[in-house]
Each structure stands twice: as structure tokens, then as C-alpha cells.
Simulated assay, not measured.
Amino acid sequence: MSSAKLQTFGAGMAARKVIPQSLDYTDGAREIAHIHHRAQLIYSTSGVVRIMTPDSLWIVTPAHALLIGSQVEHELSMLGDVSLRTLYIDPAALAVPEPRCRPIVAGELLRAALLGLCAASADVAGSRRAALLEPLLLDLLDTATRADEVTRLPLPTEERLRHICSSLIAQAANNETLEQWAENVGASARTIARHFRSETGLSFGEWREQLRMAQAKSWLAVGHAPADIARELGYADARTFAVMFRRASGVTPQQFLERAP
């Protein structure tokens, strides 16, 4: 990621520990790479948000939220129509400032407080409500359960590997072999394979399968049919896709949907 823009909020907002914002996006919308001086909580009441940071690709559903540390570069992509509720938080207001990214469980109280703060009006009653909700939200964030089940795919930093990964994220159905990718970026297959393992902890094949699983779960969550997903991911048919999905996740696509929150 490069050429990130710094987003600020003006002097009028500087005194606030927590700045809430409500944003609605259509399927496929993007926020280009940027950074904030504040930490940011990302939560969607509907749709799926794909968040790319320098070292990770995160897939966040309405069951969870992601707390992004101050100065952490990130870009957002929307899968399905997304109703985003986000907080920009003074890092000093957190008991332990988040240095990177922390996925958290969006429990009922956290969701209610977040939605209430985002909905608070600017009048006297709304300001009074916000003053009550802000310390509650900060306490809930400090004690929130880490959501280790949130999909996180490690991203390499080496320029050639980053090019390969960015290309596959943009077109997950690409079936070029490691040897073909190595030739495309001007390196040997052995070199690319070694760097993939050292930077991500995964082989090239494992990384691509995990990417496809992440894409598949996202598309299932926003209502895409398994047959359409199979085609988008480059599988011969829905049955082949279902076999891959079950091998990688332990459940069928239908069982995944039944278990989703």
C-alpha cells in the first residue's frame, strides 16, 4: 500500500475523545488507503467490510468489529450494501492504546452503545446522551473479547509477492501456477516460494486457498449463491467448490450459513 492520505476532523472535533460517524455504501464501494491520528473502530450492521492493512487482509462481518490503531494505514472494500458505524477514538482515551489491529466480538451491549452514540443528535438531549455513552463505550472496548475467529489473511511486504497477492485479491479465480507468477515478476519459483513461506507462514497454494475461503465466506454472508461463487472463484462447478469449502472449513456452505450469527 502507498500514497496513503491522512484524514483529519478539524479543530471543532479535536476536544472529543470519541467521534462517531454513520456511513452507507453500495456493493463494491471502496475507501482508498488512508491513515488517522486516531484509532478507529469499524463495525457494519449489514454487509461485509474487507479491510487491508500493510500486513493483513481482514474480513469483518456484523458479528464482529475491528479496532484499528492510530497511524495504521488501511483501505476498505464493501461486499454487499454496507451500513457502517464507526468511531474515531483519541488513543489516550483507551486504557491500552491499540498499536495495530484487534478484532473484537460485537456483543449486544457494545452494539447498542455504538448505535446509540452514532444516532445521538447534536441538540442538548443528544449531547447529554453522548456524554453518558462515551465512557461506557471506552470501557467496553477495553474489556471486549478478542474475536480470533475473524478471518485474517497475512500479507507479505516484499514488492514482488505483494504484486502477486494484490492481483489475486482483485481476481481470486486466477489459476496461474507459482511458476507462472514467478516468471511474471522476474524471479525463480524457488525464491518466490521461500519468501511466501517466510513472510506469511503459508505456502503459495495454502495462501491462495485461504484467500478463496475468505472470499467465499464473504459472498455467502451477503447472499450469493454457491454456484455463482464457484464460478467467481474459478471452480469447475458448485460441487467442486463445496468439496473445497468443506475440506478447508469442516462444514458445507449450507452449514456455514446455518451457523452464521
Rank of each mutant, 00 (worst) to 15 (best):
L161W: 09
G126W: 08
E134Y: 06
E149N: 12
L133W: 09
L155T: 05
L211Q: 12
A187D: 07
L137M: 14
H163K: 08
F204V: 07
E206K: 07
V185F: 11
I192W: 03
L155F: 03
A173Q: 12
P154E: 07
D81V: 03
A95D: 15
R100Q: 07
A216Q: 13
L94I: 09
P154L: 13
F196M: 11
W181M: 07
R194A: 10
R102H: 05
S166P: 02
T200E: 07
W181G: 07
L109G: 00
L178D: 09
E183N: 07
T151P: 00
H195T: 14
L132D: 04
A214E: 05
G186M: 03
I89L: 15
A172F: 02
A95W: 06
R100G: 03
I169E: 15
G116K: 12
F196S: 00
W207C: 04
I104S: 05
R152N: 12
I89H: 12
P135D: 09
A144D: 13
I89N: 09
I192M: 13
T145H: 12
E179L: 13
E158W: 13
L155M: 15
R100P: 01
R162V: 05
A187E: 08
R146T: 15
V96N: 13
D148S: 15
G107P: 00
A172L: 01
L133E: 08
L115Y: 04
G186H: 04
A106D: 06
I89G: 06
V124K: 15
A147M: 04
Y88W: 15
I192C: 08
S198A: 15
E158F: 11
A125L: 11
E209K: 12
L136K: 05
A182R: 11
L161Q: 14
N175I: 00
R111M: 12
R212S: 04
C101I: 00
F196K: 01
G116C: 11
C118I: 06
E183G: 03
D142L: 00
G107E: 11
I164W: 01
L137T: 09
Q210M: 03
G126R: 05
K217F: 02
Y88C: 05
A125I: 08
P135V: 11
M213F: 06
I104F: 09
W181Y: 15
T151A: 12
L138Y: 00
P99V: 04
R212M: 10
L115S: 10
R128W: 06
L202F: 06
R190K: 14
P156G: 15
S166K: 10
E183L: 04
T86D: 11
R111D: 05
G186S: 03
F196I: 01
S167H: 14
A144V: 10
A130H: 08
A131Q: 08
R146L: 10
E209H: 08
E179V: 15
V150G: 04
A189S: 15
A173P: 04
T143I: 02
R152V: 14
R102T: 14
N175C: 00
L84M: 14
V150T: 14
Q180F: 01
V82Y: 13
A189M: 06
